[in-house]
Write a protein that binds this DNA or RNA. Sequence first.
DNA 1: TTTTTTGAACTGACTGGTCAGTGCAAAAAC
DNA 2: GTTTTTGCACTGACCAGTCAGTTCAAAAAA
Lengths: 202, 202
Amino acid sequence: MESSTRRQATRQKLYEAAVTLIAEQGFSATTVDEIAERAGVAKGTVYYNFASKSVLFEELLRHGVGLLTASLREASEKTAASGGSKVDALDAMIRAGLVFIDRYPAFTQLYVAELWRTNRAWQSTLAVVRQEAVAVVEDVLRGAVEDGELSEEIDIPLTAAALVGMVLVAALDWQAFQPERSLDDVHSALSRLLQGRVSGGR
Amino acid sequence: MESSTRRQATRQKLYEAAVTLIAEQGFSATTVDEIAERAGVAKGTVYYNFASKSVLFEELLRHGVGLLTASLREASEKTAASGGSKVDALDAMIRAGLVFIDRYPAFTQLYVAELWRTNRAWQSTLAVVRQEAVAVVEDVLRGAVEDGELSEEIDIPLTAAALVGMVLVAALDWQAFQPERSLDDVHSALSRLLQGRVSGGR
DNA sequence: TTTTTTGAACTGACTGGTCAGTGCAAAAAC
DNA sequence: GTTTTTGCACTGACCAGTCAGTTCAAAAAA
């Protein structure tokens, strides 16, 4: 099927157009006409490729979180392969998260804006997709406890959620309110927090 | 003047109706008719009390963040008064944040969903209001560095943003995906992270 | 006391405009 | 010759904001 390549390219253009518009304005405030125009495509094409506006959005969410989890997992595996500790892997994942957000700020923005909304059509899609991302962090935390690197007392699901949140919000805040800072600055602030060098030492 | 009391009560009802609806559906997807109906008030009353839908929303934001900063500041001052350290004050603020979010989950949800959006009418209102909240945390961090409780190397604005983010996201995640956990569980997971007892002691 | 007036607060039907989604014939791409 | 895209007119639902009219408690007049 070569035809799927052309379709694929069109869908990609629509994703890119939709993600920035929805991040800026929100889902409801973004019109299908705007998305089509930004993508340089006729409105009919949107409906040829996606059943509806919300289906387009749901597939966009799946697409984006797929990229994120892949990049987190890769960072963690690369660290393990080169003989790093589990805490090193966490640190590498923090950096991977920051790099992702730096590359796809609009997607992150929209993900955060929609994640905790209830009563929306795509709410279940989001729950699944969130769990995939958080699970990557939980796995590393679990490994770290098994290896004795981290205390057995830590609460894995809550700590994983807090770590993800810390990275997400710190990165969005960096982009929105402190864009003059470098990725390395942000990374070391977060690293310091993770490694107990803020108020740590006990 | 009783009449101003009556107005006040109406406005309060409108805030309460709007906050849950907008948290669930987003600003654009929420209609003024819905807000009026939920508040048990005619549509005209909304426009008698607020110039427009977005003005209602902006005043709601100011109102809510006012409550939050007051509660953070109170927690910090109470700790200082009873002779606690600055790190104790940070810990107390984490708890105050959790209590606030527990009490006003809808407001928190909506705040997070809107905070990093650009190009919106209320974007500047939000920037101001965010700064007020973050500043409370920054002040305590600064004090802690001066007192020698925290290393001079920490980056105050970035660390403050990360801490706020950690609390915000952990709390929303708790409500949405792990509601069976207690506030104390969440508090101790975050506390442990702050005090370097996750991977800490270096 | 009783009646009348005042005005802030509130009401809800109505309007003008917007937008998701449809239908389809013709062109372009493959 | 099949798939994909285009362009564009159309519809029906929906919605922000308006406005002429109503309510009622308290002040002023009788």
